[in-house]
């Protein structure tokens, strides 16, 4: 290489590289869902704490969740949670391809199975929780 001169190295910026392409931004949006999943876990832990403190503490906690700020926060988390779910299910055929006999099951079938499972699990939770 020395015979041809020194090659030029283009440095990659460790900040803001994800603005270079929309696909990187989509990736970062997916990664950032973790902040909201973590926030939801915190709310659930807080719920357990209030529940362990007695009836009054629980009712206050539940009332807080129904206030506009509580609803707004939960809706915000919901948006990111749904993005996490869809981005997770959409790539399942890549991580877990299914070969039956000679051929691979079409990826769409694996994705659809996950969406169906998601629907069933959601309805089951709502049913067991006494919503209907």
């Amino acid at each position: 290489m020395s015979a041809h001169g020194k090659p030029y190295v283009r440095e990659v910026s460790r900040y803001g590289w994800f603005f270079r392409s929309p696909r990187y931004l989509r990736y970062m949006a997916r990664e950032v869902t973790c902040v909201f999943i973590g926030l939801h876990a915190l709310i659930l832990i807080m719920a357990l704490m209030r529940l362990s403190q007695g009836r009054e503490a629980w009712e206050v906690f539940l009332a807080n969740l129904t206030r506009p700020a509580g609803v707004a926060l939960q809706l915000l988390i919901l948006v990111f949670a749904v993005y996490h779910s869809t981005s997770w299910f959409n790539v399942t055929p890549k991580a877990m391809p299914v070969q039956i006999g000679e051929n691979f099951l079409p990826g769409a079938v694996i994705v659809a199975a996950h969406y169906a499972g998601w629907l069933v699990a959601s309805v089951a939770v709502l049913f067991l929780a006494g919503v209907f």
Partner: peptide
């Protein structure tokens, strides 16, 4: 999380819209 988080949020959002799940 992919399977459960959205429905758990739905569950705690429902009371704000006048539906009180018995579990809560």
């Amino acid at each position: 999380t992919a399977f459960l988080t959205p429905v758990l949020l739905l569950l705690t959002l429902l009371p704000a819209f006048g539906v009180m799940p018995g579990l809560l």
